[in-house]
């Protein structure tokens, strides 16, 4: 088995605003190895989130190819991407994006239920125990604090034991105390579970704990 889990080859991403072509990413190539903790850093508008979304298959590059676990996912349809997202990857977002009509444990178990895992509830409860939210399982997202919601989102990302977790500014909506807690949680998970982590962030604290920092400027890799 190859050690390379994720590979981006010469990817560019641009949009059209009227007649104007806006280049967001320009000819970016990147490789992420299994078990690696990579932080994508850069100032606002540098293209961090775009790069993360293209790498994870949430968006499609205008030019270039993306390979994940040895498979070219660039041209996969949404339905072809569904099993990839369900089992191979996990996502954590700045705005948490929990399903508002489901309570905490239901949010966590949802991806496992999608793949018909009979142990979904037990696994979800176990993850909630691990992040200290064992008593908050029946609360709905709106009844939880930002830090609690983000921990739920991390549990949800992990329930199907993905090989790689993508996180976009996971501490962006949190205060410093909660941010530190989330950073520690991610770092611990990476160490304990040997999960590959790709995180787009402004946070120096988070970046400082990464194996590698990929720094972007105007859509191009400056360093890393």
């Amino acid at each position: 088995m190859s050690n390379i889990l994720l590979q981006a080859e010469n990817i560019s991403k641009y949009y059209y605003l009227g007649d104007q072509k806006i280049m967001v990413l320009g000819n970016v190539s990147l490789t992420v190895n299994r078990g690696e903790f990579v932080v994508i850093a850069g100032s606002s508008g540098s293209g961090k989130t775009t790069l993360l979304s293209v790498l994870s298959g949430l968006d499609r590059p205008s030019i270039g190819r993306i390979h994940m676990a040895g498979r070219d996912i660039t041209d996969l349809t949404e339905d072809q991407l569904a099993p990839v997202r369900n089992t191979l990857t996990g996502f954590v977002f700045q705005a948490f994006h929990l399903i508002p009509s489901l309570n905490a444990i239901e949010n966590v178990m949802f991806p496992a239920e999608l793949k018909k895992d009979p142990e979904a509830r037990n696994k979800a409860q176990s993850l909630l125990d691990q992040v200290g939210l064992q008593d908050r399982g029946k609360n709905f997202p709106e009844q939880l604090s930002g830090g609690e919601q983000q921990r739920i989102a991390i549990c949800r990302a992990l329930i199907n034991d993905p090989e790689i977790v993508f996180a976009d500014e996971p501490t962006g909506n949190l205060d410093s105390e909660n941010s530190e807690g989330i950073i520690q949680l991610l770092v611990d998970l990476h160490k304990d579970r040997k999960i590959t982590l790709v995180i787009a962030t402004h946070s120096q604290s988070l970046a400082s704990r990464a194996d590698r920092i990929v720094r972007l400027h105007d859509g191009r890799i400056q360093e890393g």
Partner: peptide, 8 residues
Amino acid sequence: YYKVLGAD
């Protein structure tokens, strides 16, 4: 959300 979490 369903799609991001792997629903088809």
